[in-house]
Computed example of a mutant assay.
Amino acid sequence: MKFSGDEKKLYASGGNDNWIAEYAVENKKLIFKDTIVLGKKWRYQREQRVVYHRPENKKNS
Rank of each mutant, 00 (worst) to 15 (best):
S61Y: 12
R54P: 00
L38F: 08
A24M: 11
V25F: 03
H53N: 12
R46S: 14
N60M: 11
N18V: 14
S61T: 08
A12G: 10
Y23G: 00
A21I: 06
K9S: 13
K58A: 08
A12N: 08
A21R: 06
S61H: 13
S13G: 11
R46Q: 14
A12I: 15
E47Y: 04
A12Y: 09
N60D: 11
A21Y: 14
L38N: 15
E56K: 12
N60K: 15
E56W: 07
P55I: 02
N27I: 04
K8Y: 05
R46L: 06
S4M: 00
Y23C: 03
K29Q: 14
G5L: 12
D6R: 05
T35E: 11
E22F: 01
E26T: 11
A21T: 07
V25S: 01
Q48H: 05
R49C: 04
S61R: 13
V37R: 12
I36F: 09
E22T: 05
R43C: 06
I36S: 03
K59G: 08
K58F: 11
L30R: 07
K29E: 11
I31F: 04
E26K: 14
E26C: 07
G39W: 04
Y23Q: 01
P55R: 05
G15W: 02
G15Q: 05
K8F: 01
D34K: 15
K9C: 08
F32P: 05
K59Q: 13
Q45N: 13
T35C: 03
W42A: 13
S13E: 10
K41I: 05
K59T: 09
K2T: 09
G15Y: 03
R43M: 10
I31A: 06
Y23R: 02
D17W: 07
S4R: 02
R49V: 14
N60S: 13
H53Y: 15
W42S: 12
F3V: 01
D6E: 06
G14I: 00
R49P: 00
Q45Y: 13
K2W: 06
S61M: 07
W42T: 10
L10N: 01
K29P: 00
Y44S: 08
G14F: 01
K41D: 13
K9N: 14
K33L: 15
H53L: 14
G15R: 00
R49N: 10
A24C: 09
E56S: 12
Y44R: 08
Q45R: 12
G5F: 08
G39Q: 06
V25I: 08
Y52E: 08
Y23W: 03
R43L: 14
V37S: 04
E7P: 07
Y23E: 01
K58L: 15
S13W: 04
E7F: 14
H53P: 02
V25N: 03
R54W: 08
P55G: 04
E7I: 12
